[in-house]
Design a protein around this nucleic acid. Structure first.
Lengths: 344, 344
DNA sequence: TAATAATAGCGAAACGATTAAATTTCTAAA
DNA sequence: TTTAGAAATTTAATCGTTTCGCTATTATTA
């Protein structure tokens, strides 16, 4: 088990009794080196599988072609999709990804940023942990920016921090979904939110309210179910359905959509005849349950690609003005079996 | 937007007119430095948020506290879980993760290894891409090992490569599932495989055969459905169900289990009364469909944790003998609604 | 033929740290 | 007052690369 160590410029230089500088330039195809020497060195390098030591390179050039990624929860299918998009674009551009999972925890997020900042990366792509959004403490992001490390935030962003962002048109998505209910004849539209602490949750709620307002439907606060650790979805739904007429439910993410569907089933409601259902996030689950759930697709992969593209552009054109852009990815409604067809 | 660059040892050395070495030692709390000087320097460093440049450190110490992870497909829930386990253990030990997705492609896998090897990591954790398992070309793994970079393979491993491995007891899992069918009165057990090219697929098939053999049930090759790009699951199932009596189906991964269930539903078979169903991989899907599918859990998170633990141990005790271990994670059967209860 | 220009290659600094070895400074015993 | 020994600090090498500035060689031109 001899650990045969990698060949270095020095080794090649010794081989041909030239200087390290010559070898370096030869391998970089510099005009300063004669063709004869160049080919000689290049062939030798190839033959001996020379590969430059990127750590040394990083030190020298002060960049690492590495992007730090912080994801709140990779078991959430939306984030997995975004990650796929990030990975795709990063690899295509020769960037590495250093990934941490914040697990929705403020502390883990702060630690992750420390850990990642220490390991010398060029920039961050991240979505904010739930706990951080509740705490509203964003100084760890500001610190990174102050240290000259650019950040691109996606999905869950902080208005307080000035950086590039990629978001989904959450408000409009919820607005469209609510309108879809209205257009298919629903009037008593409830909403189930497990994410009212998140920026995206608030926006979606706004979209819902806007649609109701425009349709002249009075807002009934009791139709807005806020699920949390103390109030489980089943109980809240049960109480609501027993006390009010409900003919449509908008769920702000996919798990609660699936859970709502099960609940409706167990209570023998017919979907969509009695009650229509739309859920945010187009993962696998809504597609596979019966009936398949109509969802609002957020195009996670595309979102990830966009975020990465933005960061790489910023990294590679450091000269350009540092104006910060917020890109909005359009959602669209994927009609399945839990909503009634539009009647023309 | 002045990019205020990080403070270095040199800066601190200048500040106090001492040498860089003194500062370095002071910050590392060396006995060689007087207490007075140490506290002075440490305080200044803290105040100015000195953080050592890890790239320089890596170059010097020739290790990076970074693990390269290659995953065939992160949209597969099993791999996501493994990744969670890897991330957890890595972070807990102060290791970073550089992640690539091979997308089941041989070429992407080879490129990923190149990319990652270039970015100087201490070791690899990976699962082999499908295409690579078909090609049976594992030289890129051997190369890494020859270069002194240890590898831990998980789930889809190559017998040809001598390295640490963590696998699931696939054969036994399938054996147990098949036995469970037999014990609940099923005799005509079909199997649906979309992964007959993978090592794990082959092992699972063996387990199935072993159980049949021991129960004295003759093996009927036509009961083994091999789904691929040319033979879709619906057609194969349809043909089988029309021509044979089938009272149980074992699906070798979760998607085909869900698909099989839908197919059975559409053909008005009752599950589990007419046909029982067990699927490998305990993701979200089997839990949420109706009826919920009995599955073989592979404990992905634990698997990821184990693999990472093994790698870190190897990295941190380089002196120890380089014997290679293969750890086996026990699966277990999670009974839900697609199998009949055991009668006592 | 001498001056000039072009070509090829080298030396050393730089990136930011660690560390073995050398040197200076201080302390206390002879 | 020496002086050995301990304590504190510095020097310099090292990690592997790039690159600026310089020198040496060769080719070209007047």
């Amino acid at each position: 088990m001899k650990k045969k160590k990698r060949i270095t410029l020095k080794d090649i230089a010794n081989e041909f009794s030239v200087s390290i500088a010559t070898v370096s330039k030869a391998l970089n195809d510099s005009y300063e080196i004669s063709t004869k020497t160049k080919t000689k060195i290049q062939e030798y390098a190839k033959e001996h599988k020379y590969r430059s030591n990127s750590v040394a390179l990083n030190l020298n050039q002060k960049k690492t072609k590495t992007i730090g990624v912080i994801i709140p929860n990779i078991l959430n299918h939306f984030f997995t999709k975004v990650f796929v998009g990030i990975e795709k674009t990063a690899t295509a551009n020769g960037y590495n990804l250093i990934t941490c999972i914040s697990n929705e925890s403020y502390e883990k997020e702060v630690n992750a940023m420390e850990l990642l900042k220490n390991s010398a990366l060029d920039g961050f792509i991240l979505s904010i942990a739930e706990e951080t959004q509740i705490k509203q403490n964003f100084s760890h992001f500001q610190n990174a920016i102050n240290e000259g490390i650019p950040i691109v935030m996606f999905d869950r962003v902080a208005d307080e921090i000035s950086c590039d962002k990629v978001i989904v048109n959450d408000k409009e998505g919820a607005y469209n979904a609510t309108n879809h209910f209205i257009e298919t004849g629903c009037k008593n539209i409830a909403i189930v939110s497990t994410i009212h602490n998140l920026s995206v949750g608030k926006l979606r709620l706004e979209g819902y309210k806007k649609a109701l307002r425009e349709a002249g439907i009075p807002l009934d606060e009791s139709m807005i179910l806020k699920v949390d650790e103390f109030n489980d979805i089943d109980t809240l739904l049960k109480i609501l359905l027993d006390s009010k007429v409900v003919d449509a439910i908008l769920c702000l993410e996919e798990d609660s959509a699936v859970n709502t569907l099960r609940m409706l089933h167990s209570k023998a409601y017919k979907v969509p005849e009695d009650i229509s259902l739309i859920g945010f996030t187009n993962g696998v689950l809504p597609r596979y349950v019966t009936p398949a759930i109509t969802t609002i697709s957020q195009h996670g992969i595309y979102l990830g690609e966009t975020a990465t593209q933005m960061l790489i552009e910023k990294l590679e054109n450091e000269n350009t003005q540092t104006s910060h852009v917020t890109k909005v990815i359009k959602t669209n409604l994927i009609e399945r079996e839990t909503t009634k067809p539009l009647s023309y």
